[in-house]
Amino acid sequence: MSTARDWAELLRLPALFTVPGDALAGAATTGLHPNRRTLLAIGSSLCLYEAGMALNDWADRTEDAVERPERPLPSGRIAPPAALAAATALTAAGLTLASRAGRTALAVAGALAGTVWAYDLGLKHTPAGPAAMATARGLDLLLGATATAGRGNAPRARAAAPSAAVLAAHTLAVTEVSRHEAQGGSSTTPLAALAATTALGHAVGRGGWPGSLRRGDGIRQGAGPGPESGRGTGPDRRPHNPASQALRAGLALAYVGTTAKPLFHAVLNPSPPLTQRAVGGGIRAMIPLQAALSARAGAVGTALLTAALAPAARKFARKVSVT
């Protein structure tokens, strides 16, 4: 009989702490405070992420029986039909929550769900696999932006595109490394990932790309329906806020620090254990990256809230593997 720990291992529960920051970073780029629709986007993201985890192990159950027989499905602790049913139910729940945030949010969530299923069922072991995974993370951030902005606020939602691209680029680098976590490989992939994540950290720390929307950026306050739409930018979203600039730089440094050490070890010795550790570091680094993106948009409170998830992610990762 399956236990709660078996399901926690299947669903890689510690990795869940890396999910809310996607929607929060997306919300920050709109220049609006997080609202009820943001919470719906977070709930949708969590469901779709866990659907992908369950579906991933269901699709890889034959391969895992050889390479990772201790996993819940090949070890017999969870039956494959149960994993597939969980993936289906979680996908339906994620789409239902997104639909309550509006049609645009549902459309983005639908694209995200389609990408997740396509990756797990077909694209994962093809050259398009890393790009599909990167697309999924970018769409997750856009889900938070479109849900927060609401109907009729497309310019605010579009402002999330640069941040989504940064998150997607990080995901692409980590996914390329993860393709070698079972067998190990050459030093080239972790070295390329190390260079990419360092460059991303530098760009986020400096804020060197077109900015997110803030008060006075040419969008009428109150545009779009709902009481949350016109809340403006608030005291933690002032342009040129020294506090947000310092926080952004510190979080960008934390992001690079979280990724650099395990990747460097994998460069020196690309064995399966060190490669898996590098992948785990890349997954945990999502949190300071998301927080830095929020700080870059001037949302200091959102950045601090996101960063506060990191200690919990580290604590639970010691009990259940995130890879």
Rank of each mutant, 00 (worst) to 15 (best):
H170G: 04
H170I: 02
H170P: 00
H170R: 04
T171L: 11
L172H: 09
L172T: 12
L172Q: 06
T175R: 12
T175A: 12
V177A: 05
V177T: 08
V177M: 01
V177D: 04
H180G: 13
H180F: 15
H180L: 15
A182N: 14
Q183Y: 11
Q183K: 14
G184V: 02
G184L: 07
G185L: 09
S186C: 08
S187K: 11
T189D: 03
T189K: 07
T189S: 04
L191V: 03
L191T: 09
A192L: 14
A192W: 07
A195S: 10
T198F: 03
H202S: 07
A203F: 07
A203E: 05
V204Q: 03
R206A: 13
R206P: 04
R206H: 13
G207W: 02
W209K: 09
W209A: 15
L213Y: 11
L213D: 05
R214V: 13
R214E: 04
R215V: 14
G216L: 09
G218I: 02
I219K: 09
R220I: 06
R220P: 04
G222E: 01
A223H: 15
G224M: 02
P227H: 13
S229P: 13
G230Y: 09
R231C: 15
G232I: 06
G234N: 10
P235M: 04
P239Q: 10
H240P: 02
H240A: 14
N241L: 05
P242F: 00
A243G: 12
S244V: 08
Q245L: 15
Q245C: 11
Q245R: 15
A246N: 08
A246K: 15
A246H: 13
L247Y: 05
R248G: 06
A249I: 07
A249D: 11
G250W: 07
G250M: 08
L251S: 01
A252H: 01
L253N: 12
L253W: 10
L253Q: 09
Y255N: 02
Y255W: 08
V256I: 07
V256L: 00
T258W: 07
T259W: 02
T259R: 03
A260F: 02
A260Y: 02
P262S: 10
A266Y: 00
N269L: 14
P272Q: 11
P273K: 08
P273S: 12
L274D: 00
L274M: 02
L274R: 10
L274C: 01
L274S: 08
Q276L: 10
R277I: 01
A278W: 03
V279A: 03
G280F: 01
R284C: 12
R284Y: 14
I287Y: 00
I287V: 10
I287S: 03
